[in-house]
Amino acid sequence: MKWLVLLPAVALAVAVPWLVDDYTTATLSRLLVLGLVGVSVALLTGVTGLPTLGQTAPFAAGAYAAAQVGLHEVGGPPVQLLAAAGVGAAFALLTAALVVYARGVVVLMITLAIGELAITVASRWKAATGGTDGLIATAAFDSDRARYLYALAVVGVVVTLVLLALRSPAGLLLRASRDDEARMRASGHPVTAYLAGAYVAAGAIAGAGGALLVTTQQYVSPADFSFDTAALLLLGVVIGGAGSMLGAVAGTALVFAARDWLSGLLPGHAPLLLGALFVLTAYLLPRGVAGFDWRRIGRRDRAASPRAVRRANQEA
């Protein structure tokens, strides 16, 4: 049954650049990139229970790595993608010890600090990043259509991999750790190691997003990874339903599309209208687009989900 829905949806996504103008195609490419970073935010915020404002940091690390790989003619987009994912994962590995022991609002602030420190480094390390004026990257594709199809393929593959991983025992262990950490620890599970694993995976995904940013935008600067981007990513994921990966892509795409579209419609009034949109969403969709029960996140007394824990114990 699922294939009946999925196949036409995929076909439509592939056909889109032949149905719309270049402007819409370029816009959709940008939204796919941010949607992919949104997936990494959702993986941490929703599934792992580590709400984050810091995924802009591996996003940036990946983007600069990809840009340098391109500028030094080491390889084309696929090589850049792998390099960026690797650098994003390595960045996460280095910072994991700061993040995985904390919970709730404290994680938000630690990751915020990591994001701010990352863009400070990016702004000052002019040799690698071009400084605050940014870096114009080499053009890998010569049409909006090609850029879109490449981004669509990468995002499709990564999201599928994430969905498969979350259905495996690994996904179950993560959710169980989120829902009842004490019980998981008591059953002998190395919860901190699970969280670190998820954090590194999310770093790789955000890094891959960085490579896509470079390919689609052909430009990268510290402003792409500012606090504004981090906040909109988190809010997009909240709107999308935090625990849902497709919801994360849709939510972040919605937020950034709204910002850019509203800004084109009424130049200068985008913040007002975007603010109103957030307020409305908070009232109309209090559970997010995907309806995931994310109200437990950030609460200190975590609601126990005995079934998940029991199942996790059986599987492990």
Binding site: V238, A282, R299
Partner: peptide, 28 residues
């Protein structure tokens, strides 16, 4: 008053609502 429908401790909905109010309020 605006936060009445949002549950205590539901920090992400509060964040969404108050960030929206901050954006709109700053603009006004």
């Amino acid at each position: 008053g605006l936060l009445t429908p949002v549950k205590r401790g539901d920090h992400l909905t509060q964040a969404l609502l108050t960030f929206g109010l901050a954006l709109a309020g700053g603009s006004l």
